[in-house]
Design a protein around this nucleic acid. Structure first.
Lengths: 249, 249
DNA sequence: CATCATCGTTAGAGAAGACTAACAAATTTT
DNA sequence: AAAATTTGTTAGTCTTCTCTAACGATGATG
């Protein structure tokens, strides 16, 4: 299976990863990124950002000529999305599973996003895939009163009829993204790929419960263009068939 | 409620926290800690450890005279146990919940232990308390084949008879550690305390599924001495009654 | 068009953490 | 007891990230 060789990303320092992430987000949100805004977002002085930009530029992660437009390169975009995906995944864990506030969950995710290994990320995604099809688990946890003592009445008996996976029409449930038509939207439910391909798809931001829009879908060997988390991605059909979705409701 | 004022621990840098943690573990394991061993454990040169020791000493976290015995102060022990408890908690999550190998789980925990907030820790402990009484959840996740597709046959329907909490004899299930006799051992199942007391108990290493041994248990107002994770702790009865245990099997 | 405010850059400094090299102290061998 | 090895310390250097201060460049305004 011919794949982009999954270039071992040059190890980047945490601050630099943060700058790259910030720049990516600013460009996505406002169409441009200024030194001043980056500095404000990261809580540092402009001078510090200037230096960081030079380093990111040397590493070919951002396109940038002194005093001019700041853009993220192809390579930089990949790295930024990699971090951002980890951020999203961790935030969801702290928010949806542990029940923290969006703000606290985001802060916690920020602190941990740099050190989440590929393996841990993979497992966490599987956990979400599992929870997504058996949501009664998290529900039971959420309803379980915090201070409850053993023996207390509480709703921990979850029954399988609630299990979305079991009660789903298999035809509908196992739809792959490759079977969608241009213009259609869907929600990722599961990534069935394994190994390097799985990691690559995850790094691109394809996580369970992520919205994807199909933009172009050629027949046969043509790639599938999708939008996911604000970015355009091209997938081969062999890759796309490993992404299961449900139609957006 | 008169409590140790829960001194806002002087913010310590990550490397220093790591040194302190290492020293604590070495002392606990071998009875002493040498510069050489600390350096080896942390993967740095002895010279670097020397400097770190001076800083830890200035912060009154370790007792240490040049070229002499290296010991951890009371204050240092508290800080070390705080980190170590986070380490244990995260390791358990990656190992028991996500199913990673002990080694990979430990590495991942190491990287994250410094940034786990009090709130996230609290919520995570609650999650474990929940899982401890409803183990079928993790079991179902573990058995759910990784690549399974929706519609596949799989064991996600967990029934409440498996719920330990529901089927436990309430009398036995809600035993507090305060009701144990000297010499008896038990496993923590739940910490019912809230707020600062809860945080303090957690920081001392009292987590669900942790073994505790009662050493001395005076009647009435006398404190309860327990061993937990290799350390001796003195608890007031009011504190101890907030720790629920089951007898060690 | 001249002036002024804003924005970005450079230069210089400082803290933290690590390293190497040289040296001092302690322990073990011979 | 002397020599050799091991262990720990100090001094000096390097890198990374941050800051302040001073200085250009850009663009808006009177």
């Amino acid at each position: 299976m011919m794949l982009a060789p999954n270039a071992p990303p040059t190890p980047m320092s945490e601050p630099l990863e943060d700058y790259l992430e910030t720049i990516y987000l600013l460009v996505q949100e406002h169409g441009f990124a200024r030194v001043k805004d980056i500095a404000k977002a990261r809580g540092v002085k402009a001078a510090t950002v200037s230096i960081a930009l030079r380093k990111l530029s040397e590493a070919e992660l951002v396109n940038y000529v002194r005093r001019e437009y700041i853009g993220v390169t192809k390579k930089g975009e990949e790295a930024a999305r990699r971090i951002l995906t980890r951020h999203r995944l961790l935030t969801r864990f702290f928010e949806e599973v542990l029940g923290m506030s969006p703000h606290a969950a985001g802060e916690q995710a920020c602190a941990m996003e740099h050190s989440l290994t590929d393996e841990a990320m993979d497992r966490m995604v599987r956990f979400f895939e599992f929870l997504g099809t058996c949501p009664s688990v998290v529900k039971a946890f959420g309803q379980c009163p915090a201070g409850a003592r053993p023996g207390d009445e509480h709703p921990c008996g979850v029954s399988s009829p609630e299990c979305a996976r079991c009660s789903l029409n298999p035809q509908e449930a196992s739809m792959s993204i490759a079977s969608l038509k241009p213009g259609q939207s869907a929600i990722v439910t599961q990534i069935t790929a394994t190994g390097a391909l799985r990691q690559r798809l995850l790094d691109m931001g394809i996580l369970p419960e992520t919205a994807v829009d199909v933009e172009r879908s050629g027949p046969g060997g043509h790639p599938l263009w999708i939008r996911c988390q604000g970015a355009r991605l091209a997938l081969r059909r062999a890759e796309a068939s490993n992404i299961l979705v449900r139609r957006a409701s």
